[in-house]
Simulated scan of single mutants.
Amino acid sequence: MEIRAGVELPARREEIELRTSDGLRLVGELALPAEREPVATLVTLHPLPTAGGFMDSHILRKAAARLPALADLAVLRFNTRGTASPRGTSEGAFGEGLAERADVAAAMAFVAERELPHPWLVGWSFGTELALKYGLDHGIDGAILLSPPLHRTSEGELARWRDAAPALVALIPEHDDYLKPAEAAERFAGLPRLRRIDVAGGRHLWVGESQTRRVLDEIVSVVNPAAAPLPTRWPAVDGGDAGESRVSDEASGS
């Protein structure tokens, strides 16, 4: 079976709740490999909720649907404060990227409590701002930035990453609406250790299966390179039959 937009591969999936230091309940989901322990953990941070971003934004949903099975990764998704999705609505109200500091901390506290290994922040658009602002407050292996707009991240916050131990990777779409490759090169010039990947033909929303596969391949090549490149069919040729996959009723955002 070809792996495409609505395919959800086998995993242990658990609806979870996060509790913030200011007393809010955030809704989310944890997806784990079906029969093995994860080798690393993706803590995903979704696009701008006031522009339709949420934990089911398509790249994050597809990461959770595919990567536990294909790359032995744990994938944590959650709605930041005031954000709604089919999973539910997180309490609170949008905090312009400031109050969300507590949301990131709640997610990382959950990772620590569950002893999930090698956490990486994967931010998309607005989520990259949260990763850059607050990622270094936590014991992460690194952060992967998808379409970073760099609207809310100050130069001082960027500078903290210059000599920081965690790795930093940025995927910059050629046709991004906010930060194209030439501009990204200038804005990130002070971070010589950053790995910048300019994606020819890419767009801010990474729409289409070819762009989805490119993004997920780049994530896996950083976090678990032994699993890259990802197979395009299930079961994988060398992986045997790990159980029946199912096709989600929701195939939006493909």
Results as ranks from 00 to 15, higher is better:
69 A>I: 02
50 T>W: 01
46 H>W: 02
41 T>K: 12
50 T>H: 02
71 A>R: 02
60 L>M: 08
39 V>M: 10
64 A>D: 11
74 A>Y: 00
68 P>H: 03
39 V>D: 09
22 D>K: 10
44 T>E: 14
67 L>V: 08
58 H>Y: 01
55 M>C: 13
60 L>T: 15
37 E>Y: 01
37 E>N: 07
45 L>Q: 05
38 P>S: 07
75 V>E: 02
58 H>N: 06
69 A>M: 01
67 L>Y: 03
82 G>T: 06
48 L>P: 11
23 G>A: 04
23 G>R: 06
70 L>Q: 04
57 S>I: 00
24 L>S: 02
69 A>Q: 03
81 R>F: 02
37 E>T: 10
82 G>I: 11
44 T>R: 13
73 L>G: 02
55 M>R: 10
61 R>C: 04
48 L>R: 15
54 F>W: 13
71 A>Y: 07
79 N>P: 03
66 R>A: 01
29 E>M: 12
73 L>N: 01
63 A>D: 03
26 L>N: 02
57 S>F: 00
79 N>S: 02
61 R>N: 06
53 G>P: 07
30 L>W: 04
48 L>G: 12
64 A>P: 11
63 A>E: 03
45 L>G: 02
78 F>C: 11
26 L>M: 03
67 L>P: 04
34 A>Y: 11
31 A>M: 10
41 T>V: 14
50 T>F: 00
60 L>H: 09
70 L>N: 08
59 I>K: 04
29 E>L: 11
43 V>H: 08
52 G>I: 07
80 T>S: 13
36 R>N: 15
69 A>Y: 00
48 L>S: 12
39 V>R: 13
48 L>N: 15
77 R>D: 05
47 P>G: 09
33 P>G: 09
78 F>T: 14
62 K>G: 11
65 A>E: 09
68 P>D: 07
61 R>L: 08
33 P>Y: 13
47 P>T: 08
40 A>F: 05
29 E>Q: 12
75 V>M: 01
49 P>K: 08
77 R>A: 08
53 G>T: 11
82 G>Y: 02
29 E>V: 15
75 V>T: 05
59 I>W: 02
80 T>C: 14
48 L>H: 15
48 L>I: 14
52 G>D: 08
47 P>Y: 06
75 V>W: 00
62 K>F: 09
61 R>K: 08
67 L>H: 05
55 M>P: 09
51 A>I: 13
36 R>F: 13
28 G>N: 12
46 H>D: 03
40 A>S: 03
61 R>F: 05
43 V>P: 06
32 L>G: 09
43 V>L: 09
28 G>L: 12
44 T>D: 13
